[in-house]
Amino acid sequence: MWKGSSEGSDRFEYLQTLVTEFQDTDSEEAKEQVLANLANFAYDPKNMEYLRELQVPDLFLDMLTEENENFVEFGMGGLCNLSMDPECRDIILQSSGISLVTNRLSSQREETVLSAITTLMNLSTPSSRSEITDPALLQCMLRFSLSESPRLRNLAAVFLQDCCTREQVAQAEQQMQGQQTAIGIPLPKDN
């Protein structure tokens, strides 16, 4: 895929071509492919700077409100990859990323939900902590921690152990008992 600098094509230019194609094409399929490309490029920290410059964090965030589930999954995957980087994290936080990502915890696709949880963990900073530890969000994680899927269960457990205090979890648990039981609500499908 990556032709390398030996052919003189610079990485930045290549990424820019991808972004341009993404915006110019009308084909959903091409968009999906390019989006997946960009999300995979976001895995490599070497590209973070270029991706920031091309406003790819915002591009990924925009995908979260799309109807096409592939767009959402790939965009969320890209955010999961990008948000590890402190500067990208700050950009995502500034673009009200937390609520956009939180909204997608209800996705039917397990991969999307997993990416969302990891992204939220990455977005946790002293100033965003209160938003990340919102009782409703913790209750959602508590439900995930009962999931049949080991990956979802584990990730939710890490979230509950690392991103909030025990008191907060206990409080969320208490609130959950007061409410109607949420056990019947289906968890994401692995499709």
């Binding site: 997946a36 895995y43 592939n70 999954e73 995957g77 990859n81 991969e111 997993l114 990416s115 990891t118």
Partner: peptide, 13 residues
């Protein structure tokens, strides 16, 4: 790419 690949996003998960 050099090898045929599926459309898939890799994350740490």
């Amino acid at each position: 790419g050099r090898a045929a690949k599926a459309v898939k996003v890799y994350t740490i998960n």
